[in-house]
Design a binder for these strands. Sequence first.
DNA 1: GTCTATAGTTTGATAGAC
DNA 2: GTCTATCAAACTATAGAC
Lengths: 190, 190
Amino acid sequence: MDTRTALLDSAELASRTRGYDGFSYADLSRDVGIRKASIHHHFPKKADLAEAVLARYSDAVLTRLADIAKASSTAADAFKAYLTLYREALDDGRMLCLCVAFGAGRDSLPTAAQNQLTAFHADSIAWLTRQFECAARDKSVSLSGSPRDEAAACLALMEGAQLVARASGSAAPFDQATAAFGARLAPTVQ
Amino acid sequence: MDTRTALLDSAELASRTRGYDGFSYADLSRDVGIRKASIHHHFPKKADLAEAVLARYSDAVLTRLADIAKASSTAADAFKAYLTLYREALDDGRMLCLCVAFGAGRDSLPTAAQNQLTAFHADSIAWLTRQFECAARDKSVSLSGSPRDEAAACLALMEGAQLVARASGSAAPFDQATAAFGARLAPTVQ
DNA sequence: GTCTATAGTTTGATAGAC
DNA sequence: GTCTATCAAACTATAGAC
């Protein structure tokens, strides 16, 4: 694997368990197997690394969401895939998704990363809003508020469910927290 | 104000904006107005400080929850007070509650603090479960799942709503995310 | 209880050889 | 692109005077 990618992987994993301030170039060095100084060739400052990790994450997730929207015949199907995305990122309570991890220590992030994080959240909510608008049309999910409010609630539920699960060190609380939402997505029994 | 309390206040505020790894004894020193070395008289190790901050927070919140339960005539009233608690801790998108902030960087917390955090979440879910059980009896809120699942969902929603709000730097997304839950608490129009 | 002084380590970062 | 060597600054923590 190319070194730059290995460094991004290591930094992302570390961020998702210990936060941005919780890992150092020394950690990456041990993990990837090159010297600290060599890391600066790929990412001159730690702020560059934060930007790159977040950019890669944001692109990957947003691309995935676009694919999900395209592949889903109903809004309910899209939400099911969305739920799975967050459920799997949790890794049985060992990890958080990057947006939760970076969101918590927000004020210690470099400014560029703070803006990327804000943009990612806005894009996520926009995608969810479109799905809830679609749900209002295809009736695959019943709305209990405006598509915009539902979108904010859905994102909050996913991020919060990860935190609650992690506090217990297992995936069970994530499943409990999202059970009601999951039930809304099940095909209605006539 | 006594120095120990001032230190705890400073450490809690710093944790809620930058995380446990995001502040140092030098920050507290500037903030409180005593020298770094003097802080060690009150909290010999930073781990002691983490424990103390989390213990004070946990006691305060749990006491408040007990008071809320006692003062509320219906489950809906208790949930309204609970919602306000999280909404106010947000400080218009500038801060998170301590359990969210510490939950994110969990793996870099001292072991004792990790256990305190797990216990606090368990206590919170237990309290919420009791309220939803109460709601099933007094019919002030309609249940869409077991009290236990509802409790996990409610806690996740509060914590997630704080994260989503903070990413945008305003309280608005918190209100959007919790609007549907708030609507469930409103007295039913006959 | 607070101070000065300082130890020992780790941090992010740079210069220059290969 | 990776290395050795090194830096200045920041970190947690301790000793001992007042």
